[in-house]
């Protein structure tokens, strides 16, 4: 689906965006959502890597919203090819899940930005404009895992003074901690407390953050110190 060249010429000063995504419905809705902002114009949708490479010549987009996975090629590899063909084009990676590693990968591949697919349209527009201006935009990770290296041989338990740990947790978190220390799985805790697994997940993550530890075991061991 290509827009006519006249149209793109007519609206000078607008940011031309190419949506490269194999998932047609998602791509179409992205275009629809983007159309609400007059500063941005969609120049087309590429359903696979080949189409994407064709369209960067035809439509001359300023920014590509690049999905990470196509039927014919890996999105990461496609970055290289796009950069070789048209180095001036800015690329925003679209990751499905906010998992660790994607940001690092896009930085390494010199993609200008990274968004998660479920980000708000506001964030997306902001990111496109920011990238078009020449800066980078990496979506702040909602990741449950802090991106830091773990040194397994150098663990300090408890990570924080006992007095602080005692005051850190609210009653709900203390209850969860009590179950954690019994060795229960998140699913079991979820059904015990009548919460969704995701909620338990998040709460455990918060506990780890509060304790300043990276792993469940460290948290449990720290809590065991408090009990003593």
């Amino acid at each position: 689906m290509t827009l006519s060249p006249e149209e793109s010429i007519n609206k000078q000063g607008q940011v031309k965006v190419l949506v490269a995504d194999g998932h047609w419905l998602f791509a179409k809705n992205t275009v629809t959502l983007l159309s609400s902002d007059p500063r941005i114009v969609s120049v087309g949708i590429a359903k696979n890597g080949r189409e994407c490479l064709d369209m960067i010549h035809q439509s001359r987009p300023d920014v590509i919203l690049l999905d990470i996975r196509f039927p014919d090629i890996n999105g990461i590899k496609l970055i290289d090819q796009i950069k070789i063909a048209r180095p001036e084009i800015k690329i925003i990676m679209m990751a499905e899940l906010d998992q660790d590693g994607y940001v690092a990968a896009s930085v390494k591949k010199a993609a200008e930005g990274l968004l998660y697919k479920d980000c708000s349209i506001r964030e997306m527009i902001q990111a496109i404009l920011k990238v078009a201006e020449g800066s980078n935009y990496y979506s702040p990770s909602s990741s449950i895992f802090p991106n830091m290296k773990i040194d397994f041989d150098d663990l300090h338990i408890p990570a924080k003074p006992v007095e602080i740990l005692k005051k850190i947790l609210n009653p709900e978190e203390k209850e969860i901690m009590g179950l954690l220390i019994k060795g229960l799985q998140n699913k079991e805790i979820a059904s015990a407390l009548g919460l969704s697994v995701r909620t338990v997940n998040e709460k455990v993550n918060i506990i780890l953050l509060k304790f300043g530890v990276n792993t469940r075991l460290e948290a449990v061991l720290s809590w065991a110190h408090i009990k003593d």
Binding site: Q185, N205, N214, T215, R216, L217, V220
Partner: peptide, 8 residues
């Protein structure tokens, strides 16, 4: 490590 009580 997040879900199980172990170090890796």
């Amino acid at each position: 490590m997040f879900k199980e009580l172990t170090f890796i």
